[in-house]
């Protein structure tokens, strides 16, 4: 079993945005890993590990389209526990998501992977496209917005609880397949691999890298490809024509006590 996980670097979402002319200025941004990708790697690791045993049920490969010297997020995920990395050396900010999906799909094919796991969206562009596109390009079944996942190794299939508008849909897909993960996938009991005890309680959220993991990460293999070597010609059929700041919310008021607050909520805002 080989699991490919897409990971992306994004400008630190906790930094304030700088606007330069008609665009966002990221020249001085700190780049960090996309939070949903942390959930995706956590999902893959929970599938791969057999708690209480040394054997691993899957190899976890993290894949990123980024300049090869801007790979800190890849190293971070190797430290978290992924087995190795694949980098497609390119300026991902100049590509559309179809190009990124083609690159991911090609890495998936060449590696002979069984499962692609992606975060549901990236926190900067918020496209929510790449996993579904890769599934379409690979002509594989997909389960987007996963909140729970059970791996039935006997049937070589996944049963996925998907966050849909009116609840949670349960969908079973045969492998190979594509899954995108939503927030609740990192709750303590969301991922079951049939080997680790079903009642095993993972800690809530994506795991942090251990000191040993950080040391090990430097020794893990990272392959670097170019888009040309993967046979993909980058395209950009969607251009950002401009970026502006949204309208500011009108300034509010500071009240002096809980009593004043409740009075104002009753008489002024009329919400109580």
């Amino acid at each position: 079993m080989k699991i490919l996980v897409t990971v992306k670097r994004i400008p630190d979402p906790d930094e304030s945005l700088k606007f330069a002319g008609n665009a966002i200025d990221t020249s001085s941004s700190k780049w960090v890993a996309n939070a949903f990708d942390e959930y995706a790697v956590e999902t893959a690791l929970r599938m791969a590990e057999h708690i209480g045993n040394k054997d691993r049920l899957a190899e976890v490969i993290v894949c990123s389209v980024c300049p090869k010297d801007k790979r800190q997020h890849v190293t971070q995920f190797l430290a978290m526990g992924a087995d190795r990395g694949v980098i497609v050396d390119a300026d991902e900010t100049a590509m559309d998501s179809q190009t990124v999906a083609k690159l991911v799909a090609e890495v998936f094919r060449r590696e002979g992977c069984d499962l692609l796991v992606s975060g549901k969206l990236s926190q900067d562009s918020e496209g929510n496209e790449v996993a579904q596109r890769a599934a379409g390009l690979l002509d594989l079944p997909q389960a987007s917005f996963a909140a729970t996942l059970r791996w039935d190794r006997g049937a070589n299939a996944l049963t996925v609880g998907r966050e849909v508008d009116d609840g949670v849909e349960t969908k079973t897909i045969p492998l190979p397949a594509v899954v995108s993960v939503d927030l609740r996938i990192v709750l303590p009991h969301s991922v079951k691999n049939g080997a680790t005890a079903d009642d095993h309680k993972y800690s809530d959220g994506a795991r942090l890298a251990s000191l040993r993991g950080i040391t090990m990460a430097k020794r893990k293999k990272v392959d670097v490809h170019t888009p040309a070597a993967l046979g993909v010609t980058p395209s950009s059929h969607v251009a950002v024509a401009g970026v502006t700041a949204p309208e500011k919310r009108a300034a509010g008021q500071i009240v002096d006590s809980a009593q004043t607050l409740v009075n104002k909520l009753i008489t002024e805002a009329k919400v109580l």
């Binding site: 559309d96 579904q132 379409g136 917005f145 849909v164 508008d165």
Partner: peptide, 21 residues
């Protein structure tokens, strides 16, 4: 949640761009 799954997948098959949300 339905079209957020379908439109990108269909766009990939059509080799087409999309604008989401």
């Amino acid at each position: 949640s339905t079209l957020r799954e379908v439109v990108p997948r269909a766009a990939a098959v059509l080799d087409a761009p999309i604008v989401t949300e």
